[in-house]
Amino acid sequence: MDGTLLILIYVFVLAMFVGFELITKVPPTLHTPLMSGSNAISGITIVGALISAGLEEYTISTILGLVAVIFATINVVGGFLVTDRMLKMFKKK
């Protein structure tokens, strides 16, 4: 175990706390958009997928990367758009 791992764990634990603090403040009426929106955020793995799909040599890593890019893009694009579609409907009197 080296210093980097420790920092990564720090970041993870602190981010969890930030998440708990923020999300407890989201009202129940917005729980569905919260799920779809946070879901889109979890599509951040697209960052890793892009690097795999962009390798110069054509290998199994590239193929896995391509499928990952497709999955993650569906997750990101679909997630943000459907969340926006829902939130647009929430109107006060």
Binding site: M16, G19, I23, L34, S38, N39, I41, T45
Partner: peptide, 11 residues
């Protein structure tokens, strides 16, 4: 990835 993942995990 860790930050975003943790936020969604917490949610």
């Amino acid at each position: 990835l860790i930050i975003a993942g943790a936020l969604v995990g917490a949610s």
